[in-house]
């Protein structure tokens, strides 16, 4: 099933990239407060959305893996952790470029930036633990993912207490107030959601292939074919 789904999803998200890019230039209104830099928004914010969705998928599938011990969920947890780390890197890099354009500084220890960095470091930690912690790595990474996901609502509450970050929601004065801006942003979210699905499926496939190689090797060792 995933053999057919991956090309379809990839094509749809490719169309989405082009459409959002075109709408961003020609259709979305010019932002008077943040000017042309604001165009970074249309891809930056969807990536942030996907970061949170991927982290949540990773946390939930880790929890199910811990309870049920089926390898399928472990594959999904690993794949979504890696993809979440990728989206986190994307958010941090584009955010950093936007900060340079708008605030003339690459990085500032503003709360939301700090928390995104923290979340990203946790995700990188999961991927690293997965690779280097030896025999109990899968459980350990799963525990880290579950507790890391538990922390997200708390971190979110904490950050919202005082914040200078441009807001995608109601709080922002200049951003996303115009319906056309919102429309293009949600199109971007949809596009990158499809893209996220594509990447996770591809990664799950390769994790499954890795397991098959391992099993075949063991079989070969048992049969005495391999040394």
């Amino acid at each position: 099933m995933s053999n057919k789904a991956i090309p379809v999803l990839a094509t749809l998200s490719a169309i989405g990239f082009v459409v959002t890019l075109w709408l961003m230039y020609s259709f979305a209104p010019f932002d008077r407060a943040l000017l042309f830099n604001q165009k970074i928004f249309y891809w930056h914010v969807p990536h942030a959305f996907m970061l949170f969705i991927a982290t949540a998928v990773c946390g939930v599938s880790s929890l199910i893996f811990l309870k049920k011990r089926t390898a399928k969920w472990d594959d999904l947890a690993l794949a979504s952790a890696e993809v979440a780390a990728l989206f986190g890197a994307a958010v941090l890099i584009t955010g950093s470029i936007w900060a340079k354009a708008a605030w003339d500084i690459w990085w500032t220890w503003e709360k939301r930036l700090t928390m995104s960095l923290l979340l990203w470091l946790t995700l990188v930690g999961i991927v690293l633990v997965r690779r280097f912690a030896g025999a109990s790595a899968d459980r350990l990474a799963a525990g880290l993912a579950v507790f890391g996901t538990l922390g997200i609502p708390f971190i979110y509450t904490m950050v919202n207490a005082s914040d200078h970050h441009p807001q995608a929601g109601a709080g922002g004065a200049a951003l996303a107030s115009h319906p056309d801006i919102k429309l293009v942003m949600w199109l971007g979210v949809l596009t990158f959601f499809l893209w996220f699905l594509t990447l996770v499926m591809m990664r799950v496939q390769s994790v499954a292939a890795e397991r098959e190689v391992r099993e075949l090797r063991e079989k070969g060792l048992d049969a005495g074919v391999l040394s």
Partner: peptide, 29 residues
């Protein structure tokens, strides 16, 4: 939270390094 991860890390060789590495990000809130 510490006992959960210290117990999980019991059999891991580099547990002394991994415990704070895992624990501090989780305990940030």
């Amino acid at each position: 939270v510490g006992s959960v991860f210290a117990a999980t890390l019991l059999k891991v060789r580099s547990r002394d390094v991994l415990l704070p590495v895992i624990l501090y990000p989780i305990l940030i809130p």
